[in-house]
Amino acid sequence: MWRWLHPYAKPEVVYRLLGRWLPWVSIGAAAVLATGLVWGLAFAPADYQQGDSYRIIFVHVPTAMFSMSLYIAMAVAAFVGRVWQLKMADWALAAIAPIGIVFTFISLFTGAVWGKPMWGTWWEWDARLTSQLILFFLYIGVLALYHAFSDNRTGAKAAGILAMVGVINIPIIRYSVDWWNSLHQGATLTVFERPPMANSMLIPLLTCMLGFALLAGALVMQRMRNEILRQELRRPWVKMELQQGEQA
């Protein structure tokens, strides 16, 4: 396996590979996301008790879910970066963090906008909401630490430690609504049970989830390419790559 993986540890190989995949993932993200959002926002039926307000679920649930998935991916990258000392794992950490910040922010914002008409409040210091806010600060902390040192490897090390420690927050967010009584309702989408949601709403929601997953993938891939270029700026292959880009 290591022999097979070995060529992929080279920045230029990863850079080109991501460059080849990126257009397809981007097109897929745009198409699936547009389908899912139009379907959910315009064609899915209104909810029996929340009316049209529930439609914010089509943005809220995917961004909230992937804000956690991205954090796990970032923590795994940090772990690999610490234990196996792979530069590229450290760079992946820096590529994922800003996307995670944006996803977390969107989930908090759409949650507040949804909470006002339905619950009657923008914000409540409820276990789910508070732990998601902590996730937002963790992401900001990781990104800030990464860029806080003039030596890049020291920054990656510090950021990686915070990312690994912070991963404990993920199960807390996930199970906060089961462990404590809270204003936030329980999870609609679970792995083992059929979601208590009509199919006419569930299918556009799952479409939106796939769309947001592809979007997150495309953004992370683009940022990873940028980070590789930034780190390898003085290497000959980057100069060649840039010259080719100018000619094309």
Partner: peptide, 25 residues
């Protein structure tokens, strides 16, 4: 001084809710 509403994790169209649960909001 403040009353907030909770809602559950079920989502369905109004016709289905009336049929299944007899709820009309």
């Amino acid at each position: 001084t403040e009353v907030l509403a909770k809602h559950d994790e079920e989502y369905m169209p109004p016709e289905l809710a009336e049929q299944m649960k007899g709820i009309k909001h």
